[in-house]
Design a protein around this nucleic acid. Structure first.
Length: 806
RNA sequence: GCCGAUAUGGCGGAAUUGGUAGACGCACUAGACUCAAAAUCUAGCGAGAAAUCAUGUGGGUUCGAGUCCCACUAUCGGUACCA
């Protein structure tokens, strides 16, 4: 009987002691760098979702080693973050201590699953030797003008009392704690990711990411093409600049709308007749949280700015200007030309406030309607009408022509806009990398000298943020006091820290050379290991981590510090593992599966095999305690094959085709992440050997090689018992002969009119005439075609034979 | 609303990419072993008496469709006054 407890322990200890899976320093070998998202070491320990991703790439890593690659498959911990800090506030235990404890627990769990990680390169984002370089990269960003401090309305979480990036606000509430998010004016460090927007789109063409990942990144960046157009303000030299993607509709612009935060109001206060009303509206809008704004998005609100009129530049008509919060200050110019006939929001607004609606586009396939029930926005079938020089043009042509006209007459310019906004990089929190900046009255913001890095987090007793949302570090008066690195005058340190995304934006680079104290990684290591050959992680990180780290990488590339434009050559993602009831695992639902229990009861190999067998890798799958038993049973049968072992240095005739087929299938399926079908191939093989009551040595050995990446412990053990001295993990991956993957005789299906009627045995690659002879000699077929006219006979070699009769 | 997935037995899922639908596993049924149970082994297992009918629904292309085309429906993920 197979004793998984003993065997798994034995091999894990050996691997650890000998550093079996550490990457080699030999840079002449072909390399393969596989990356999984390093975990946040939470107090709850490992989730069964983590090993799904880690096992998948562990399988590829192990296969690559057998294929002769120098493999880097590293692991580390993304250990800054709010839970440790919240725990500290509650229990007055330093986050460093809980983080250390959690990491120790995680390591033990990870090691018990037998991943082939290179533990000698383990990193930890909270280690000063690591965050020294996170701070260093920030300083480089600052020096290039890509980090700047500005006062701006930010998303402020009323629960966590921190500013949040756009990406961290979900449906108007905080992604982490679920508290409402409000707008608050705060001085914040920002990173100019928008400067890289176009490149972040363009360079997706050169990498092998799943299409859905590319699509999500593109959507998030949200590129749109259009024009900025100036509308003159009557009786002044001033004008109002709008952004539109539909300049072809300009003849239908019957009013304008500006956002409540627009500076236009302040500038023209003296002209506004209903200033009180306008100010009241501004006030009301500023009180609304993002959540309320989107909640109320059914009913439009707004106020006309009386006393001021704009001029439509093509019709020369006077049009009113309104203020409304459906126009966002953060997108475009914060002002729009409203074309109610051809924009649904403008249409609703115009209906509510009785503003004129002029149709300037009609559908080419329909008669013009007297009155619109909704805005007509179809760009494919639209034809310009009531539009002067644009009349008769298709919408697409009209857009081109309108932009030409606008540019020729100095009314505006073509313009590309992005939804992507700059990255709010400050957190008013303790447990993060201190932002290495000093404020001097005379010199402004000055970076901490690079030789003084790392700027360590001071030890504190009080982790509470200030009432107004200041960082806990703002209470560390001694620490804050410093000299200006530039002029030497009294100055104060920045008390904000970096967001959790900082440390994970470049960690993969550190793995290449983790102990270097001169550079974040040596040129040689970077040249050799870049880019990452395969990165697997969750879809939830597609718009945050993935985008941020691509941005940082491109920045480092521009400085000549990394050799590739893109960090990740290939990106795939895994599906979530749900609870047994088909719902997301959560403590409150009581459906959480603890990996420790599974490993205790079934062993690491069963756990790994089950997670790969449970369903298609990229799709969500519910956990099943009953199914894992089947995988455990399978491994017991693999072990029992030792009882029916016979001699044989080559495949036996009986199993030759099956062996070649299996090598081919498993080799290909691993590359396509079809792990579930690999496992079923293994099971089928075991069934065949068991049925025949024999397996020869060569067959057993090949089988163990194929299974090794999935179930490394049991396969190593049997391998050793077969008398092999060297480790299975480094034996060459089995090869197959294409010609031998097809059976000598084929059970050919015969169809009559597409319906299966019989099967006959034919020889492999038999000529059509011979097959035809055999088919027509078959008694069953004779019966079916007797007295009928044969219209056609189709033979797909080795596949199928179909007779069409009338 | 927009973007992206998914839909096949009681369940998880397979199908060489247009060629025998239901591989493999779970559950279930029967048998062997056992005083008995568990474990293990052996056999069966979409529906139907059969002709046949079956891959979310309705059309189409084809000798042949789970797979391709058109029109829908449902579920999941992402995103949203983005002008």
């Amino acid at each position: 009987m197979y004793n998984f407890k003993e065997v798994e322990k034995k091999w894990q200890d050996k691997w650890e002691k000998e550093g079996t899976f550490n990457a080699k320093e030999d840079y002449s070998m072909p390399k393969w760098f596989g990356l999984i998202e390093f975990p946040y070491p939470s107090g709850q320990g490992l989730h069964v979702g983590h090993p799904r991703s880690y096992t998948a790439l562990d399988i590829v890593a192990r296969k690559r080693r057998m294929q002769g690659y120098n493999v880097l498959y590293p692991i580390g911990f993304d250990a800054f973050g709010l839970p440790a800090e919240n725990y500290a506030i509650k229990n007055h235990i330093h986050p460093k201590i809980t983080t250390e404890q959690n990491i120790a627990h995680f390591k033990e769990q990870l090691k018990s699953i037998g991943f082939s990680f290179d533990w000698s390169r383990e990193i930890n984002t909270t280690d000063p030797d690591y965050y020294k370089w996170t701070q260093w990269i920030f300083i480089q960003l600052f020096k290039k003008g890509l980090a700047y401090k500005t006062t701006m309305p930010i998303n402020f979480c009323t629960g966590c009392k921190v500013g949040l990036a756009n990406e961290e606000v979900v449906n108007g509430v905080c992604e982490r704690c679920g508290s409402p998010v409000v707008q608050k004016e705060k001085s914040q460090w920002m990173l100019k990711i928008t400067e890289y927007a176009q490149r972040l789109i363009d360079d997706l063409d050169d990498v092998d990411f799943l299409e859905k990942i590319k699509a999500q990144q593109k959507n998030w960046i949200g590129r749109s093409e259009g024009a900025e157009i100036n509308f003159k303000i009557k009786g002044t030299d001033d004008s109002l600049l709008v952004y539109t993607t539909r300049p072809d509709t300009i003849f239908g612009a019957t009013y304008m709308v500006i956002s409540p935060e627009h500076e236009f109001i302040k500038k023209h206060e003296d002209m506004i007749e209903n200033l009180d009303e306008v100010k009241a509206y501004q006030e009301k809008a500023s009180m609304k949280s993002d959540f309320e704004r989107s909640e109320l998005n059914k009913e439009k609100t707004g106020v006309e700015i009386k006393g001021i009129k704009a001029i439509n530049p093509v019709t020369n008509e006077e049009i009113p200007i309104w203020i409304s919060d459906y126009v966002l200050i953060t997108y475009g110019t914060g002002a729009i030309m409203a074309v109610p006939a051809h924009d649904q929001r403008d249409y609703e607004f115009a209906k509510k406030f009785n503003l004129p609606i002029i149709q300037v586009i009609k559908d080419k396939n329909e008669e013009l309607k007297e009155e619109l029930k909704e805005a007509y926005t179809d760009i494919e079938n639209g034809i310009a009408i009531n539009s002067g020089f644009l009349n008769g043009l298709s919408s697409k042509e009209a857009i081109k022509k309108a932009i030409e006209y606008i540019e020729k007459n100095n009314l505006g310019t073509r313009k590309v806009n992005y939804k992507l906004r700059d990255w709010v990089f400050s957190r008013q929190r303790y447990w993060g990398e201190p932002i290495p900046m000093v404020y001097c009255e005379d010199c402004g913001w000055v970076p901490v000298p690079e030789e003084e890095l790392p700027l360590k987090l001071p030890e504190v007793k009080d982790y509470e943020p200030g009432e107004n949302g200041e960082s806990p570090l703002s209470k560390q008066t001694e620490w804050i006091k410093t000299k200006c690195p530039h002029c030497g005058k009294e100055a104060r340190r920045e008390t904000d820290t970096m967001p959790q995304w900082a440390g994970s934006s470049w960690y993969y680079l550190r793995y290449m050379d983790p102990h270097n104290d001169q550079e974040f990684a040596s040129k040689k290591a970077l040249e050799y290991w870049s880019p990452i050959d395969w990165y697997n992680g969750g879809m939830e990180h597609t718009t945050l981590h993935l985008l941020y780290s691509r941005f940082w990488h491109k920045f480092l590339y521009d400085l000549g510090l990394v050799p590739t434009k893109e960090p990740y050559q290939k990106r795939t993602s895994h599906g979530m593992i749900l609870g047994e009831n088909g719902e997301k695992m959560s403590k409150s639902k009581g459906n959480v599966i603890n990996p420790d229990d599974i490993i205790r009861d079934f062993g690491a190999d069963s756990f790994r095999v089950y997670e790969m067998f449970m369903g298609p890798f990229d799709q969500t799958a519910p956990w099943s305690m009953e199914s894992i038993r089947g995988c455990s049973k399978f491994l017991d049968r693999v072990w029992s094959l030792q009882d029916i072992l016979v001699d044989g240095e080559e495949y036996s005739k009986e199993f030759e085709t099956m062996m070649h087929k299996a090598v081919k299938k498993v080799s290909n399926d691993i590359e396509e992440m079809k792990y579930n079908t690999c496992v079923s191939t293994f099971m089928t093989m075991v069934n065949e050997f068991s049925k025949a009551k024999k397996i020869n040595k060569k067959e057993y050995e090949t089988f163990l090689q194929l299974l090794n990446p999935f179930a490394p412990h049991i396969t190593e053990e049997i391998w050793e018992r077969l008398g092999n001295k060297e480790e299975l993990a480094y034996t060459p991956w089995p090869k197959y002969d294409e010609a031998k993957t097809i059976d000598e005789t084929i059970d050919l299906p015969i169809q009559i009119n597409g319906k299966l009627r019989a099967n006959i045995d034919i020889k492999k690659d038999e000529e059509k005439d011979k097959v035809k002879e055999q088919v027509h000699a078959d008694e069953k077929i004779k019966g079916y075609i007797a007295g009928k006219e044969i219209v056609k006979e189709i033979y797909v070699p080795n596949r199928i034979y179909n007779i069409v009769v009338k």
